[in-house]
């Protein structure tokens, strides 16, 4: 063990996938048999990550950034191409059984309940597989039934549950053996607002009780309500790592004013007058977007400057939050997306 308090320790983690390069059709398939050429895709391209006991980490990034692959590496589902992982001192893919006792996993898109069985049978099977002592099991079940309100779901077949019910049962199934760390992969996807709130409240409680949580999500609400630390990943690398609070404060100093103009925007003129702002057009040439640091100049000054140059029909002022950060991250054309956020 590298450190006494690091629960997850990943260094230089790399995962490459080889995809066969095949021409379409039968001829392509035959040619592939002879030549066997592959494209190498680096889903995770060197990640160093350390999570201490009791932390709650949001792991975010656009689709295809390598989030799920990282989670699969940390849980031992995938074997890394290079690099090292230790979770609670165990190498997950090498000692799967020992690792399984330390971790709980929830996939929002897939259930881990036995599909054809009543929910209580799933819990009993998990109890047997994890060898949970009877007293611990009863205590754990009582607590989960109370906070997740799954009591009425116990006799129901898993495939007959609604999405929200299924997610609550899934959470309980992942936590039954009281794991030290819980991985949650998009746990609120597709849920309606009220169920989302319940799930988040439950996760917050989990964090407050000292369970370590790693959460991948596209939902800003999940991050802001559950996590204290945010790790942003893109193209297989970590782009940002820091407290959620600091990120919000930094971003909060950024403001955006959106103008609707009577005529196409004279971009070069506006940029000349507002050299430290980011000036772009929106959906049409008549939509102007000015992004600036509120500590350098007030929004009113920005509006006045633009109005002095061109006739303005309408304007709207937005303060940025974590939502905008994620949105900008997902827009890969803006490499400066995270300026000032580190």
């Amino acid at each position: 063990m590298a450190s006494t308090s690091a629960l997850v320790e990943a260094t230089g983690l790399v995962k490459e996938f080889r995809r066969p390069r095949k021409a379409p059709g039968l001829a392509g398939a035959l040619k592939h048999l002879v030549t066997r050429r592959f494209d190498v895709h680096r889903a995770v391209a060197g990640i160093d990550l350390r999570i201490d006991e009791g932390e709650s980490v949001a792991y975010v990034g656009p689709n295809g950034a390598g989030k799920s692959t990282t989670v699969k590496l940390l849980t031992g589902i995938l074997v890394p191409t290079a690099g090292e992982v230790r979770v609670a001192g165990v190498v997950p893919h090498r000692d799967r059984v020992a690792n399984a006792r330390n971790v709980g996993v929830v996939f929002g898109q897939r259930t881990q309940l036995w599909w054809d069985l009543p929910v209580h049978e799933t819990f009993e099977l998990l109890r047997d597989m994890y060898r949970i002592p009877a007293a611990d099991y009863r205590r754990s079940m009582d607590r989960l039934c109370e906070v997740l309100e799954i009591g009425p779901l116990l006799p129901v077949l898993a495939r007959k549950l609604s999405l929200g019910q299924r997610m609550r049962a899934d959470l309980a199934a992942a936590l039954l053996h009281e794991p030290r760390i819980v991985y949650l992969d998009e746990p609120t996807i597709g849920l309606d607002v009220s169920v989302k709130d319940r799930v988040r409240a439950f996760l917050r409680q989990l964090v407050d009780d000292g369970t370590t949580v790693l959460l991948t999500t596209h939902d800003v609400g999940d991050i802001e309500e559950v996590c204290r630390r945010i790790v942003v990943v893109d193209e297989g690398r970590i782009r940002h790592d820091g407290p959620v609070g600091v990120l919000r404060d930094t971003l909060a100093s950024n403001s955006t004013v959106r103008f609707q103009l009577a005529a196409p925007a004279p971009l070069h003129l506006i940029r000349e007058r507002l050299p430290d702002a980011e000036v772009t057009t929106g959906a049409s040439e008549r939509d102007l977007v000015v992004r600036f640091d509120r500590t350098l100049r007030p929004a009113g000054a920005v509006a006045a400057t633009v109005m002095g140059l061109v006739e303005v029909r309408d304007l709207r002022i937005d303060d940025e939050g974590v939502a905008d950060l994620i949105r900008r991250l997902h827009d890969r054309d803006s490499p400066a997306a995270l300026n000032g956020a580190g």
């Binding site: 031992g76 589902i77 059984v97 020992a98 399984a100 996993v105 897939r110 881990q112 994890y130 060898r131």
Partner: peptide, 13 residues
């Protein structure tokens, strides 16, 4: 095919 083997790999059995 559906990637559901994942959950079986996560259990101590």
């Amino acid at each position: 095919n559906r990637g559901e083997l994942d959950r079986m790999l996560l259990r101590p059995y």
